[in-house]
Design a protein around this nucleic acid. Structure first.
Length: 824
DNA sequence: ATAGGGTTAG
């Protein structure tokens, strides 16, 4: 015997006791079964005293690799090591417990190997090594003169299926035919499985269809294939057909078809399968119950899922994962994390899937602390090389606004997948880092990574944010070239983007062209009309929506109420607020209350707005008082403005903007001492007004202008031009609004006004584009009153159309008027 | 010694 075969050191307890205890733990049925198994094999050339040897029976009962090691000395002592049966059994056991290395240590030194030994070794390779290794061992068998048998092919085919390696699988398929196994049910089933696992489900079905006879496993294979390839309806259809053809589903069928049912979220079908499970007596099988937990939670019945989960006597980690996922899917991430904690407390070791779900829940809650805890756990469980988990980690950090950490993880991530890129692009886009999002998107292109619909849906909103029509058209072109123009999600994003880039009519054209629309599609279009001050169009589209099949949701009402608000349609807005609850059973959220205060306040019904706030059933938040203060600024109401502002100072001590608004209200009323007080309060608290910034797109560049800034290369030219432009519009009737600035000389006042970012941007636009071109400006704050007035005159004297998108809405300036009707 | 199908996921 080779010294390499020396078994691991013996444990302190005598060998036989350990093994016997294990054997005793097994039921007597198992022992009998093993004996029967061994006797059945007596047709081969192994003498009875070998296969009836107690060691052979005991060896078969080993439950882990350690027990196998303990056994080897016993085999050696009984001079059984050279018996084929024991050699093969050892290889088989090492293979069963996943140690290819130890299987080889037995296999390699054996001088005269029987065929069975090769077969078992091939199985070890197919199950525990790379496909290449398995294939080269198969070649070696050929060289060593071992004729292939049917099992060899099925092992290899299964491995090809598991690796989705269709080309290698096809090689085996050819050899199968050559060796005369073309109609073997097992082999054919492996082929069906191979195609299904290689995402060629239609090919798989063709094979399935051609089979002369089909057993239960064939049905299960094709049903699982459809289910795993996202063709849930086909899977369910075949589930019915198999029963019509007289096959009774077994637990594997159930576990294959339930995910399909979960996929389409059909509670009705889920319940009927549950009924079948009970009738067939599968109701205590862990995997069946786990699949039921999944179905119920995916159909929105977390309560029912939890009842099943709680009733389970045994749970696998998958059961926990399904339940945790059930909570996150149903928007109860708190419960999800609680269950995750419970799982850890019970000592169940989480898997990659568990951690992905827990990270998802953290992202959902913005819970950075728990997220970082899981990040550490991930190191402990050595899951940092699992790309899927790392993707979830990136998403979690992005959602928790730690884009810096996310970017670092992304940079260092080995084997990035499309999902990794998508997570990062989305992360940038959702954190307002538009340029980074676009740069990463371009980098993907350079690295030849083809975007999918998720990438598009992440990057399009970034462009909407940028609001540059040229870029909007570019991505639209890309959408068409990459054939995403039939994807509802992508198209909805485009509708929203065009509206946000000032091109509402283009948005509507796309909207009309779509064959399928989601609620979000309608919402995007209604909101688009709203922000462009086209309240009537918004209301009309909303009525049209109410006639159709797509039900409005809470966001729809938010869009339509704010559309009414932008257009002064107070009565309509109030009506919608009422029917939201009465006709649609939707509870208004804080945003709806804010929109209502905005609706009333903007229209000058300040007392009504204030009463509305007092009568709110929930504690009003920042947005509500913010709307109130804004309305007070428009309608010059010092009294209510003060009340709203003081509430805001309490609720949001960091927000400098409210101080500025209040100061403006005081300035309008010439209450200069109060203005000074607010200013000094701001200074004391270190609060600053967000600097105004306007963007213009010119040819291939986006130019940004800050108020009073002289950093732009054309700065000098711009200021000179502005001076003459101001003279021109003054001649047309423009009067500078000096009311907001009081403590400087009149000419300085004008200078300050004239250096506002939007005026600089407009001047730059006029200077650098040919007559007649529409100018698009994007501003980070709201347009100031003086700029608004000046822009109207500029549109008149230059004959240009100027579209300004501010924080809240669009202003289309044309021939001396604005689409907002001075109502913003 | 020896075959094929199955639950959770971004």
């Amino acid at each position: 015997m080779s010294s390499k075969l020396r078994p691991s050191p013996l444990p302190s307890t005598p060998l036989s006791t350990t093994i016997i205890t294990t054997a005793a733990a097994a039921s007597s049925f198992n022992v009998q079964h093993s004996v029967a198994n061994l006797q059945r094999r007596s047709t081969c050339h192994i003498p009875a005293h070998i296969y009836n040897h107690p060691s052979a029976i005991l060896l078969e009962l080993c439950t882990c690799i350690k027990e196998v090691h303990q056994f080897i000395p016993l085999i050696v002592k009984n001079a059984l090591y050279n018996e084929h049966l024991f050699q093969t059994k050892l290889v088989s056991l090492f293979c069963k417990f996943g140690s290819l290395r130890e299987a080889s240590r037995v296999f390699d030194p054996i001088p005269d190997k029987v065929d069975a030994l090769y077969h078992t070794m091939l199985k070890a390779y197919a199950r525990n090594s790379s496909l290449d290794n398995a294939f080269s061992f198969f070649s070696r068998m050929n060289i060593d003169g071992v004729p292939p048998i049917i099992y060899n092919f099925t092992y290899l085919l299964k491995a090809c299926g598991d690796n989705s390696d269709l080309p290698k699988g096809k090689q085996i398929h050819a050899q199968l035919i050559v060796n005369g196994y073309a109609s073997n049910v097992f082999a054919m089933n492996c082929i069906v499985n191979l195609y299904a696992k290689s995402r060629m489900i239609h090919e798989a079905y063709k094979m399935f269809d051609k089979m002369p006879e089909r057993d239960l496993v064939c049905w299960n294979t094709i049903i699982a294939g459809y289910s795993q390839n996202g063709l849930a309806k086909r899977a369910l259809h075949l589930f019915i057909r198999m029963q019509e053809e007289g096959r009774s589903p077994d637990p594997v069928t159930i576990v294959s078809v339930l995910p399909a049912c979960a996929d389409i979220g059909s509670l009705r079908i889920g319940k009927s399968i549950h009924g079948y499970v009970v009738k067939a007596g599968f109701q205590s099988l862990v995997n069946v119950l786990t699949a039921l937990v999944d179905v119920y939670s995916k159909c929105g019945c977390v309560g029912a899922a939890r009842l099943i989960f709680d009733s389970m006597q045994f749970r696998t980690v998958v059961s926990w994962n399904s339940m945790i996922d059930g909570y996150t899917h149903n928007g109860d991430s708190k419960q999800a994390l609680q269950l995750f904690q419970e799982m850890l407390n019970e000592g169940v070791e989480p898997t990659n899937v568990t951690l992905m779900q827990a990270l998802h829940a953290c992202a959902d809650l913005g819970d950075l602390v728990e997220g970082e805890f899981i990040h550490k756990l991930l190191y402990k469980l050595q899951l940092t090389s699992d790309v899927s988990v790392m993707n979830s980690l990136i998403s979690m950090y992005c959602k928790c606004k730690r884009i810096d950490i996310a970017a670092e993880i992304f940079e260092n991530l080995q084997g990035k997948t499309l999902v990794s890129w998508n997570a990062m692009v989305l992360g940038y886009a959702q954190n307002g880092r538009v340029t980074e999002a676009l740069n990463l998107f371009c980098k993907m292109h350079l690295q030849d990574i083809r975007p999918d619909s998720f990438t598009m849906v992440s990057v399009i909103p970034a462009l909407a944010e940028l609001s540059v029509l040229r870029q909007a058209k570019w991505i639209h072109g890309l959408v068409i070239r990459t054939s995403f123009d039939k994807n509802v999600f992508v198209m909805t994003a485009l509708v929203d983007m065009y509206a946000k880039c000032g091109a509402v009519s283009t948005a509507r054209k796309l909207f009309d062209m779509m064959d399928e629309r989601h609620v979000t599609t309608w919402n995007a279009m209604i909101d688009g009309y709203g922000t462009h001050g086209l309240g009537r169009a918004a209301v009309e589209l909303f009525s049209e929506m109410r006639q159709g099949a797509i039900k409005p949701n809470d966001i729809t009402f938010l869009c339509v109420i704010s559309a009414c608000s932008h257009s002064g349609l107070v009565e309509e807005g109030c009506k919608y607020f009422t029917i939201m609850k009465e006709d649609y059973g939707l509870e208004p959220s804080m945003d709806h209350y804010g929109a209502m205060v905005d609706l009333l306040g903007r229209a000058g019904q300040l007392n009504e707005a204030w009463d509305f706030i007092q009568n709110m059933p929930i504690e009003p938040a920042i947005n509500v008082f913010g709307a109130m203060l804004g309305a007070c600024k428009i309608h010059k109401n010092v009294d209510l403005g003060e009340k709203a502002a003081h509430k805001l100072f309490e609720l949001d001590p960091e927000g400098g903007g409210y101080h500025v608004l209040l100061a403006n209200i005081y300035a309008r009323a010439s209450m200069w001492d109060k203005v000074a007080k607010v200013r000094s309060a701001m200074e004391k608290n270190g609060l600053q007004k967000t600097p105004g910034c306007s963007l213009v797109d010119l040819r291939n560049e986006v130019h940004s202008f800050y108020s009073g800034s002289t950093h732009h290369p054309q700065s000098e030219k711009i200021y000179v031009f502005l001076e003459t432009l101001m003279d021109e519009i003054k001649a047309a009737g423009y009067v500078p609004d000096s009311n907001s600035i009081h403590d400087v000389e009149e000419d300085v006042q004008e200078q300050l006004l004239n250096s506002h970012s939007e005026k600089l941007a407009i001047a730059f636009g006029l200077l650098n584009t040919s007559p007649g071109t529409t100018i698009h400006i994007r501003k980070n704050l709201r347009v100031c009153g003086d700029c608004h007035n000046a822009t109207k005159y500029i549109s008149l004297v230059t004959g240009r159309e100027i579209i300004v998108r501010d924080m809240h809405r669009f202003h289309h300036f044309k021939s001396g008027t604005c689409s907002c009707g001075d109502y913003w």
